[in-house]
Design a protein around this nucleic acid. Structure first.
Lengths: 214, 214
DNA sequence: TATTCAGTTATACACCATGTATAATCTCCT
DNA sequence: AGGAGATTATACATGGTGTATAACTGAATA
């Protein structure tokens, strides 16, 4: 019960420095080309700490990965968001967003691959990743709100956000790049795709649609 | 050195039956909702054999998964390919292809998620999956060759196959569906996206899309 | 019937990774 | 000096992959 005047805040920065060191080490290990070489032991060694310290900071592998992703998304992927809003029209803003994300995906391609990998196998991380992907969705919605949606898109208005979200996802850049190109090199192509979706005149008359599917 | 006239072919079907039983069991385990619950032990138990038998047939987990994917792709995903070519034009063929793939992704959503998961972590399986994805690409190329490419697509001719390939990938259906919809429900939307990409009149003049500039 | 061989099983083992528990140690602040 | 919080060292349980080896089974053959 006795009030204890103790640091607890003073040493916080030291502890946080340790945390950040671990997070950075984890990101580095994830970005190594060695496929499937992610272990808490490797992270700890690279961070210069013990595996136990990692468990003290984060309780599990999933939480650690979640925080790594969190940090990267907030600090790297969407750091240029303000400049996106400086564009003069919707097309320009989306172009800027594509460039921003393309750069991020390029810098962290291996990391992203492993991240979606373990996310597909770890329910906890899966939830975190899903939530973090909402970040991108909210960014798209903000852009549309600011610049106004196009009048005649090739897709439903209600599905416009979904469509852009898919086209801006890592998977789009990754599989479009394939083994021979980088996500960054693919940026112009993604821009064209989006422009095609946005600028296409509406096809309101489904009278002609030649579909015979099943 | 004595020539030994022995079955070796007669019992083949029995052995192959065992193989198929294991493959089916593996697919079942992969399609369980239990995220990250895939072990060779579970597969063996469900197949009614020992873990050793699994190792006798396939040498490793990666190879087994590769063959499962192989079987599914060939037998389920692209089994309806002939009917796709019965369509009367390009749009109809692609619509049919979208429906075919959407059905497959819907039937095997959990499996696909886990598959890309381990593929992101296992180099061997990664290669297999990459090669199997070429199956889809070749299908697209065949359709374009049969029905002719659109005259004025919204994307480069050279990138047309890449674009369609991305739009037809599992990731498109999966992230478009999100947690609240199924890949199958998303089929009409993907069809519209593709029609938008294909049917949009060429925009040769990059004079900026006619849009409200705030 | 006895043999023979492929495939299967039973069993044991090595290895690695995650996660938990506990006591010892270090560091910095008062 | 003393103490609290963080870190370390160490051990352990668990579960999965992959390898090795000997025993077993069943069916075709002689």
């Amino acid at each position: 019960m006795t009030p204890r005047p103790y640091p607890k805040q003073d040493r916080k920065h030291v502890v946080d420095a340790g945390r950040d060191k671990i997070l950075a080490a984890a990101a580095e290990v994830l970005n190594l080309d060695d496929l499937g070489a992610f272990s808490l032991d490797a992270v700890a060694r690279r961070a210069g700490v013990t595996r136990m310290t990692v468990y003290n900071h984060f309780g599990s592998k999933g939480v650690l990965l979640g925080e790594v992703f969190d940090l990267l998304v907030e600090r790297d992927a969407f750091s240029g968001m303000p400049t996106v809003f400086e564009a003069k029209d919707l097309g320009g803003a989306l172009d800027a967003l594509v460039g921003m994300l393309g750069r991020f995906y390029d810098d962290n391609r291996q990391l992203m691959l492993k991240m979606v990998g373990v996310a597909g196998l770890d329910p906890d991380l899966d939830k975190v990743l899903l939530e973090k992907n909402l970040r991108r969705r909210r960014g798209i919605e903000a852009i549309l709100a600011q610049f106004g949606a196009p009048k005649s898109p090739a897709v439903d208005r209600s599905e416009l956000v979904n469509t852009l979200d898919v086209l801006l996802s890592f998977h789009t850049f990754n599989s479009l790049a394939g083994p021979d190109r980088t996500p960054l090199e693919v940026v112009p192509h993604v821009r064209r795709m989006i422009r095609g979706i946005l600028g296409a005149p509406a096809k309101p008359t489904p009278k002609r649609t030649p579909k015979r599917a099943r």
